[in-house]
Design a protein around this nucleic acid. Sequence first.
DNA 1: CTGAATCCCATTGGATACTG
DNA 2: CAGTATCCAATGGGATTCAG
Lengths: 113, 113
Amino acid sequence: MNIQTNKPEKVCPVEVALNIIDGKWKLRILYFLQDRTLRYNEIQEKIPGITQKVLTSQLRQLEKDGILTRRAYAEIPPRVEYSLTPIGKKLITVYKALNVWALEYLDQELVRN
Amino acid sequence: MNIQTNKPEKVCPVEVALNIIDGKWKLRILYFLQDRTLRYNEIQEKIPGITQKVLTSQLRQLEKDGILTRRAYAEIPPRVEYSLTPIGKKLITVYKALNVWALEYLDQELVRN
DNA sequence: CTGAATCCCATTGGATACTG
DNA sequence: CAGTATCCAATGGGATTCAG
């Protein structure tokens, strides 16, 4: 890609954001974490349809990207809590923008059909 | 999914929006179309790295979802123009929200590293 | 010029079973 | 409880070729 061009493939910020958001369930996860810490199981319960493997993987990615924090307690039974980082909380803004737009969109779809 | 539950798999608006936005290049395309109509080739030039198949496919999806309009002129050489629909233009809001967040995010990443 | 048609591969996500 | 470990299917996206 970009073979012999002088455009240095500058990474558009939006793409960075999209890569972070990308993943079927990530925004859903963020949504539920927006105002409180949740345990692994609690998240899973709130998102019916997600499998453990996928949930774990998306949580790991979000953690890697600095969107949320994972705290494991050395207890029996084990306890792991997830919460949003400050920058993660700010992503809710995007969620809301999406939501506002989606409502408008669905509204006009109704009219179209 | 949701076998024998009473939750009727309500489609979260945000998911609708995500499905529409989803696709590596869609927001980029929207971005370039935000204030003017563009021809196929013009879009392709503005987005280095995208292949024709993918560009065509993403344009078709956006058209199907009512985000943009395709106008083909029966001329030689052929001319095809793309422009945003009203609801498509409103998606720019989301783009901007993403962008604002992404800038903040990249900023703090710099601090972290 | 503006695509459509094929072929192909990598990645994502899902089903299921197992574990410290 | 909070994950791993496998295996598998679907999809997205890329390279290339063909066509109106």
